[in-house]
Each structure stands twice: as C-alpha cells, then as structure tokens.
Design a protein around this nucleic acid. Structure first.
Lengths: 342, 342
DNA sequence: TTGTATGCGTTATCAC
DNA sequence: GTGATAACGCATACAA
C-alpha cells in the first residue's frame, strides 16, 4: 500500500472539517451542505487526486463493495465467460470480486470461504457448490448473502441461477431420436453435482416420453466432468455386445473424450456413433466433426447471478428468488447422423 | 459483511487485554509471552472460530495481503493458466488477488489500476501492459510494486517475466526452413505489445540467419491477436502473386484464423500452405490438422511473476530483477509439411 | 511479561 | 450547514 491523499488532506486544503469533506463527497449527504462548499471540496479532491480508502470505509460501514467468486477451476473453459458476466455487472456497480478456485475439493471450498470472510466480502457468487454441502447451514446462519450459479443446492434458501438442463437434454435426445437412433446411451455427470443428476433425470424422462426403454447398462457414470472420464465411459459403452448407436454426454468435455474413444476403437463419429454434448464450449467450432451440443448463455448466467446478489445486498429485506432458470439453445453441427443399418 | 469474532471477544473470554491477545496470535510477537497465556488465547481463538479482520489489520499496517492481477481478458485461453500459476503461489503465502480485465483498452487500464489502489493492494501482477504505457511513470513514483508477465515494458525498473520469444520464433522458422520452405510469410502481432515487436524482430533475424531475403510484403501486421485478424492477414498474403508456401503466425489465434482462410480459399493446410503458431493454447490438440506451435509455460510464468512480486513485497530493499526469460519448447503437430513443387 | 494509549481513514451521531 | 467526537478492529510504541 502507498501513501495516498486522504480526507484530512482535503480538509486542510479547503479549510473545512473532515466530516464536512466526507459529506461533500457523499452524494446522499451532499445536499445538506452549501453548494459553494461542495464545489470547493470536490474541486480540491479532484485536483489532489483523492481516492477513497475502501478499507477504512469498509471497517466503518461493514460494507466493502467486494464480493467473492468461488469457482472450481478457471482453466475450465466454462468459467471464464461466467466470470466475465459476473464482472460486467459488478464493475459498473462499484464492486470488485475476489476469485478463488476450489479444484472441486470440499476442504478447499470451506477454506476459501474463510479467506473471503476475512476479507469482509459483502456476498458470494458460488459456481462450485455441490448438492448438499453440509457447511451451508453455517453460512446461512451467518447470513452472508450467497447466490449459486450454473449449479444449485438441493435445499432452498439460497438463490440459484441455472440453465434449463431438462430442455437441453430433451433437445439433444430429440435430435438423436429424430435422426433414427433407438440405442441411445448416456454418459452421466458426477452425481454430487446438480447438473449431473438433473441431466441424468432429464435423460430418463426423455427416453420415457419417447417410449424408449433404455437399459441401465446404457447409462455410464463419470466421476468428473473431464475428457478422460468421457473416454473411459465411452470405452465401456462401446464394448457392449449391443453397442449404442448414439451417445448423449452430460457435457462437452465428456463428449470430446467419447469422440476420441470412438476414433481410437477404429470407429468414426458420426458414421458409426453419434455424439452430443452440453455447454457449447468456446473452442468447439474449431474441431472436427463439429459437436452438436446445448448452448448455454454463460455470460448471461453470470450476469443474472451478479444482479441477484447485488439486489440482495442493496435491499436485504426484499424477497429472494429461489431459482432462476435460463433458456438454452440447441446447436446442430456434424456429430449427429442417422445410425447405420444393422 | 457479517458480525464476526474479534480480538476483544477473545480478550473478554480469557481475561487478558486485547493487545495481549493480538500478540499471542502473532507468531513474531508470541515469544514475549508466557506459554500459558499463548496457549489459553490460541485455544479460545480456535474455539470461538476467530478469523482476523484483514481490513482492520490492513488499515493499521498498510499491508493488505492482497495483490491486483491485471489481464486483458480472462476468456482469452492464454490467461487462465497464468492466473492459476499466480494464485498457486499467492495462496500459500496468504495472499489473495483481485482480478480486473482491461479488454486491451488503455483508459480501462488506468481505471482498473485506480480501483486496485482504492482496495489497498500491496502490489500488482500486470499481464496487460503495452510497451510504453505513459502512466507508468506515475505508478513508479508511487512506488507500488509491479511485475509484468507475458509482456514487458520498453523501459527498465519494472521486472518482467517473459517467454523466450526469439527462441520460439527461431524454432518455428527452422522447422519451416528444414521442411524446405523458402517463401515464408509472417503474420505479425500488434506493435504496441512487446510480444508483437519481439516476434517480428526475431522473424527478421531468423530470415537473415538463414540467408533468406523476405520481402516486406510477406509481413502482414495484425491489429490484435485475434482469429479475425489472422484471417484477414492470411487473405492478404494468399492473394499475392508469389504466394508464400508457409505462414509463421505471431500467435495461435492468428494461426487459426490463417488456417480458416486457407481452407476458405480452397487450399489446404499443410499440403498447400504450412502454418505455425505461438503459445500452444489448451484446446489445440483437439483440432485438425494439429497446429505446430511454440509451447510456453503459462503456469510457470505466472508462478515466477508471483514469486518475484512477493519477494519485492517481503524484502523491499533487495535488488529487483529486470527481466526473467522463461524457456520455450517447440511442439510439432501436423500443420507443417514440405512445400509442393512449383 | 503484560497493560495502556494511540492512530490507521472513514462515517455516523452528536452538538452548535 | 458545519464542527467535534467516537468508533470500526487491529497493531504497536511506550509504560509499568
């Protein structure tokens, strides 16, 4: 930190008291002062290059205009656009964010939450929640405002901005079914994440709606939303006697892993096996075959999350939304084709 | 912010004075106290779940254990690994970072720097500097410790962690030359960035070393390191009467744009035109043909930058390094092939 | 070895 | 309308 211009300096310079300077610089208190004083103070502040010390203000007011942003891993391409969305709303409102990574580990989640509390964050945008984080009870008791984004908690009380998982999965299922597929397998996401369970449930529901009886061995559960797990699960599915003709993966990274596995087995996508993803990650348009997937508005969820949090901060009494579901869009590329005749 | 346990609470509970509690919790002051008191205080702190208020401490000590991290745009895949590198070093040292995006705009750079100063950051890791930022003079006078990463300033006094641009470009040039190319063009990066100029200089030097006379019209200057600019510059180069057989691009995104342009002209890479990039962005292994490029240790530069900054913070008197150059590695994939016979 | 007093920069609550 | 004063939570120089 660095010696900076303070209210005291301006007070000395203008010949008024510090508290007057403080008022003159506060839009809400300004009108109790003479226009002349306000003008002199603001001019001097400008001239001296005054910048408020947020630490001191925060110490006094208990509001730091800082929010925590908890994400699993910034190198996962899903999150940078969410982060930008959050910040695009925070910045004009005068907030900054402190970003912390959990790497999907619960102990780190708790630890990082403590780190944020030490810094006196006004609230938290949480993009790394697991369905049943037990420590959330504590958090709620401390009444620290939290909004989850992309994922949701199993219980209410914490607003969550999520995507329309059901619509997305249904759209992918329909695409595959319409192309003629009847042996459709699912690579499910981790079941401790809301996205994992909801997409699996939606898959089952879609199958039911289409009157398709999907055997249990057509559902392969991944441990994490990563390429390697997609590869592993796809290998399993492809080795089945009754090989599926299509794989509906719970996200893009799983889908990419599956595509690689298909390739490595001497098969090809989409001729032998069709594949779909979820998220529409940024770089997907560059790969071949283009992955048919569900586009989610990553920036949008981030923005909504930030807006929701700020609303909670500026108006603590207002009723909090429970869950905001954002619309999705199906993106058709080349990874889906009709199944080969048997 | 939320009502938390303070030193005062612990003092009341243990029957000693606040200052004693403060000392007992400070490793450097601890040894001036009775073991018994230290034990009682730490036990109580533990039990009550005490967490220091960093704002108050920072207000008092002028050190917040917070650093600013200025980047152009977190959605540019080059930066997340750098950010992780920085944080992997900051976190164990008890620091957090406030990340701000400049979008490559100077006015935003200044503004964000102000934002960081208001927050009392101890120092800044700057990944978005332009070569001759004029306001850097001010900054240096304020003696706010700064380290640049990935890019460098033209003048000394601010340590910079950079990659070995010359070695990277030379390696790509050699690959192309060894494959038989003699008509090698360059898509240069923006010349207000150190990476842009240094890679262009290195290109010229390499050509000289290989006794190749590269005409000026084989050098196409991009305005930004983006796909679209790579496309535009490549179109220019491909429309030349004496079409180059290889394009050495100043980074991966320019290279990808060039590949698309080649494709759109009915040509193919690498059969008709070879292409190389720089950075080895994360998703490159997924695209076809695989891009031959320069791998830079993104996490590594981030780590070194954080280490350097922390060293400056903890030991302000020590001499500061001027420039740290990190080694690179050539990555050979499929985008380079011998030129077609004329 | 421990307690007392003070101040970091700001804002809020009093007076005048 | 403006000034004086206290307090936020902590760290430290000084006393005892």
């Amino acid at each position: 930190m660095v010696r900076a211009v303070t209210l005291k300096d301006i007070a000395r310079e203008t010949g008024v008291h510090v508290s007057t300077v403080s008022r003159a610089l506060d839009p809400r208190a300004r009108d109790s002062l003479t226009d002349e004083v306000v003008a002199r103070v603001t001019e001097t502040a400008q001239r001296l290059g005054y910048r408020p010390n947020r630490l001191a203000a925060g110490l006094r007011t208990k509001r730091t205009k800082t929010v925590g942003l908890i994400i699993p891993d910034i190198t996962n391409p899903l999150f940078p656009p969410i982060v930008r969305g959050v910040e695009s709303v925070l910045e004009p409102a005068g907030y900054v964010s402190i970003i912390v990574n959990t790497d999907g580990r619960r102990d780190r989640e708790r630890f990082q939450m403590q780190v944020l509390m030490e810094r006196g964050v006004d609230g938290v945008v949480h993009a790394a929640v697991e369905r049943d984080d037990p420590y959330f009870d504590d958090i709620r008791q401390q009444s620290l405002p939290i909004v989850t984004v992309n994922r949701a908690l199993d219980f209410d009380g914490v607003p969550g901005i999520v995507n329309d998982e059901a619509a997305g999965i249904t759209a992918m299922f329909r695409l595959l079914h319409d192309a003629g597929h009847r042996r459709i397998a699912h690579i499910a996401g981790p079941q401790q994440l809301s996205t994992g369970v909801e997409r699996l449930e939606a898959f089952r529901a879609a199958a039911r709606d289409y009157g398709l009886d999907v055997p249990e061995y057509y559902i392969s559960r991944s441990e994490m939303f990563v390429f390697e797990e997609g590869y592993r699960c796809a290998e399993q599915l492809l080795s089945l006697a009754k090989r599926p003709t299509a794989i509906l993966a719970a996200n893009d990274r799983l889908a990419l892993g599956a595509m690689r596995a298909i390739d490595d087995q001497g098969l090809s996508c989409p001729e032998d096996v069709s594949v779909t993803g979820f998220n529409d990650s940024d770089y997907l348009e560059l790969i071949k075959p283009g992955l048919t997937t569900v586009r989610v508005d990553k920036t949008g969820v981030g923005q909504r999350a930030a807006e929701t949090l700020i609303a909670m901060l500026e108006n603590p009494e207002a009723e909090r939304p429970k869950r905001i579901v954002m619309p999705i869009e199906a993106v058709t590329r080349e990874s889906v084709a009709p199944p080969k005749a048997d």
